[in-house]
Design a protein around this nucleic acid. Structure first.
Lengths: 131, 131
DNA sequence: TGTGCCACCTGTAGTCGCTACAGAATCAAG
DNA sequence: CTTGATTCTGTAGCGACTACAGGTGGCACA
């Protein structure tokens, strides 16, 4: 029930340093402490940290994670604001995907034109050099 | 013909500080100087910086840019090595695209299930909270 | 020739999201 | 009570820039 930071790290797969970092930047609530000053976590911290971890894995910026968490807090009466954040994030993801797709096409076609031998022509370099 | 760093920046769209940074990390050759110590660039530096800029925009890491530039240098007899770098990079791009696609699907379907009103249920938060 | 002003110089520090120490203190087991 | 693992704080490092501070250089104009 009461967990040390190491146990929390093991259960969530988040590094100890990262847990302390999340606390420092206000993503994770500061836990209670032992008399000696060691952090003591409860079950709810496992959930909270899991939440943060998943949100970060989905590419939400720390500020967005904070916003979502706060909006989803007391009463959870702000679904539309959370939705806004998610939609905005989705747009960014789609734009990043489009960028990568363009990039992929260019790289793929360039590599395809590359003879690959020890010759003075190189499609990759030509592509990069064309002004 | 002879350009100041500011003119080079304007012609290439690369910030002055970034040009100096590229020089410091060995991406761009150190140019000649005036008696007073100001950098003086030639036309070939415009091309070199353009090359670096395009490669960076395509997501090549600085070390890769250095490698491509060096391989493409005297004689350009290493097309296959340049190709290797490009192919490896292409693989990374494709893997990143796959990650984003997964993410996009999850976000899109989540947002779709979101009622968006001032209600205590929020599909986004539920998605993040499910353990 | 002076003078004014912008551009440029170097060096350092800040950004973001962690990660990695160093050196001291605490905890749990034997 | 001792040992050894864990945790503590604080600071520095990463990559790839970006931004400043405080000090010169260059050049047009008078």
């Amino acid at each position: 029930m009461a967990l040390s930071i190491g146990q929390l790290a093991q259960r969530t797969g988040v590094h100890i340093e990262t847990i302390r970092y999340f606390e420092k930047v206000g993503l994770l609530d500061a836990p209670s402490r032992t008399d000696g000053g060691h952090r003591v976590y409860a079950e709810r911290d496992v959930r909270a940290l899991g939440f943060i971890k998943r949100a970060r894995e989905l590419g939400f910026a720390p500020a967005e994670v904070r916003a979502i968490r706060d909006l989803g807090g007391p009463g959870r009466a702000c679904c539309d604001e959370v939705r806004d954040i998610a939609v905005h994030h989705l747009e960014q993801v789609r734009s990043k995907m489009a960028d990568l797709a363009r990039l992929e096409r260019l790289l793929a076609s360039t590599v395809e034109h590359c003879s690959g031998g020890h010759v003075p022509e190189c499609a990759v370099i030509d592509m990069l050099e064309r002004t």
